[in-house]
Each structure stands twice: as C-alpha cells, then as structure tokens.
C-alpha cells in the first residue's frame, strides 16, 4: 500500500469543493497508517496547485499532463489515471461525486479491478479499513459498505457531505508526470460544448438551494425563486412536478430521479414533499418550507415552516435577507 489518492478536479481554474473535503478527511487516516496523502491532477491545472491544496493536508500533488489530456475524455483520462497510479500501488482513490467523476470513475474502477462506492455521504476508518456510508433508494436507506481486501478502494463522495476537517496545513511536494495518451485509445470526439449557464454555482456544491415546486404555478413563477437565490448566492432547484410541467429544465431537478443534494440550507417553496423529492434533499442541514397548504408533508421534515402564499412570503423574505446581508 502506498498512498491515499484524491482526484483533484478543477472547474474554471479552481479546485472543486469536494477535493478539499476529501483530502482533509483523509489526513487522519494518512497519519494513522503512514500512507502519503496524494492529490492527483490530470490535464490543465492551476500553476500554484500545491499552495492551494496545502490547507487540506496534502503531502504530494501529482500532476499528470501531456498530449491528449488538454480536454477531458473519459477514455483518455481513465487511461492517464490508471497508468500513472499503476506502479504506485494505491491503497485508495477517491473522487468528488461530480458529473465528470461519474463519467470517469467507473472506467477507472474497472481498469483497476476495484469496487467503486458511489455517491457516498460518509467515510470512516474502522479496523484498518475504509467503511463507506451510501444512501440507497433515494436516501430512504443508508448502507454501510466496504471493499473486499486485496484491491484498491475507490469511492466518490457527494459534495458538502463530508465537510472540511480542520487539519494542519502542509507544504505539498510537486511531481509532474508527462504521459502521452496512446493514439487510437480514445474513440469518441467532442464536437462542441454548448454552455447554458456560466459562473452559476452548481446545484450539488451549493451551500444554499432555493427550490420551487408545483405551487410556483408556471415558468414565470420561478422569477421569485431566482430573486431569492440571487440574494443568497444560492442555486435554484425544482421538484419533479415543476420539471415535468416544463417550467424549468431537468438539470435543476432535486430528488430520486434528479440530483441528490446536501446543502446547509434548503428552502422549499410550493413543494408538497413527495417521497421522491424528500429522497434528494433530506440530508440538508436545515430545511425551510413555504407552502400555502398547512397539511403539506414537507412541514413534517422542515426545521422552519411558513404557511402562506409563496408569492407574498418569498419576496418578503428576499427583501428581508437583502437588507440583513447588506447590513452585515
């Protein structure tokens, strides 16, 4: 065993939130076992990567680069990660559960002949092995699972679920590995990327999510949701009812057939609380419900509730918070 590796993904030149969360949470295990804690960066990376990862306790930043890695492809990156780690006998390789990792990690797991514990919300070190907590059935149940011995341990972690552990900053070493993706090993070609939104906080990484459901009444109703989200720097979510009605696009859907999220604060507006929606957001730290139906199920899981017309309550809350945050 030689190292706990964390795939350090970047977005628009910044490391993803989960990277720091996983690194810092693994620092204790690295200390207990003597395994080095290694951040693996593939392709373009910030020049000061070691400095940026120092606060999270990394011992080494391994930067894999070369022809064929300028742009992400699943086959190219899977090859790069596995060939770079092949001689290093990794004990573990962890990813943040981002859209990119969901595309990459299964191939890497197959190449490394390893289990992949996907979308974990908990990590523990017990009796000399990693134990993962994973929500199943859309969060209705939680499983505790392990990898069989004799193989590297792979997992992806839901952003915001581990949180950043307090660790002493390190001065990570920096190692560059030059590779060349073998010709012909990447069969798919990216023709075009159509950006729909830039700069907006991703739903799964957001600290705060403001969501709208059937009670929003139509696409124009999401304007009050967006205004509240803008004041809070929050992401906009939606229930399946709102998405299926065509009021907002599917990438906003929270729930068992959408995204599972763990924000600090989840504000559900005009959402009744169908079991499939609760599945996606019940791990939020604090839930607020605003609904005109006092019997809505959402009030049974919400920490704070307001019974009222969302078109009156949400703008009032927006105004109140705008003033509060300006004062602060």
């Amino acid at each position: 065993m030689a190292g706990i590796f964390v795939y350090a993904e970047t977005k628009e030149g910044e490391f993803r939130k989960a990277t720091g969360e996983i690194l810092s949470r693994c620092r204790g295990v690295a200390d207990a076992t003597g395994e080095p804690l290694v951040a693996v960066v593939v392709g373009p990376a910030p020049e000061d990567a070691p400095r940026r990862l120092a606060p999270f306790g990394a011992d080494l930043v391994l930067h894999v680069e070369g022809p064929g890695l300028e742009v992400y492809t699943s086959q190219g990156y899977a090859w790069a990660v596995t060939s770079c780690l092949a001689g290093r006998q990794p004990a573990a390789l962890f990813f943040g559960n981002t859209p990119l990792a969901r595309d990459l990690a299964p191939r890497v797991a197959e190449r490394m002949d390893a289990a992949l514990h996907a979308d974990c919300t908990g990590l523990a070190w017990e009796d000399g092995r990693f134990v993962f907590t994973r929500p199943l059935y859309g969060g209705k149940l939680l499983a505790r699972a392990v990898s069989r011995p004799g193989h590297p341990v792979l997992a992806t972690f839901r952003p915001n679920s581990l949180g950043v552990a307090e660790v002493a900053a390190t001065s990570p070493a920096y190692e560059r590995v030059q590779v060349e993706v073998p010709a012909g090993s990447v069969a798919s070609v990216v023709k075009e990327t159509i950006r729909q939104v830039a700069g907006r906080v991703s739903l799964q990484e957001a600290e705060i999510i403001v969501s709208g459901g059937r009670g929003v009444g139509g696409p124009e109703g999401f304007r009050v949701i967006e205004e509240l989200a803008d004041v809070l720097g929050a992401a906009v979510g939606a229930s399946r009812a709102a998405v299926d009605a065509g009021w907002i696009s599917y990438d906003h859907q929270v729930g068992q057939t959408g995204k599972a999220v763990s924000p600090n604060l989840y504000i559900a507006c005009g959402i009744s609380g169908a079991i499939q929606h609760l599945a996606g957001m019940s791990s939020a730290r604090c839930i607020v419900a605003i609904n005109k139906d006092p019997d809505a199920y959402i009030f049974k899981v919400a920490d704070y509730g307001i019974v009222g017309d969302l078109f009156q309550v949400v703008p009032a809350l927006t105004a109140e918070l705008r003033e509060m945050l300006v004062r602060a």
């Binding site: 289990a115 969060g139 069989r148 920490d303 704070y304 509730g305 307001i306 017309d309 105004a319």
Partner: peptide
C-alpha cells in the same frame, strides 16, 4: 469487489417550528 455490511433506515427528520404572522412579519422572524 464490494460488500454491504448493513442497511438501515435513514435517520428520520422531525418537523420543526412554524413561523406565524403576516408575510412581512413571518419573513423577518424566519
């Protein structure tokens, strides 16, 4: 390559408090 050790219901959330009042007042309290 993996093994489930145990399965358990997710911890149930409890309903919290309802914030009463007219929209302005409730929003301020919240």
């Amino acid at each position: 390559r993996s093994e489930v050790l145990s399965l358990a219901p997710a911890p149930a959330r409890k309903g919290g408090r309802l914030v009463a009042g007219e929209p302005q007042e409730a929003a301020r309290t919240l």
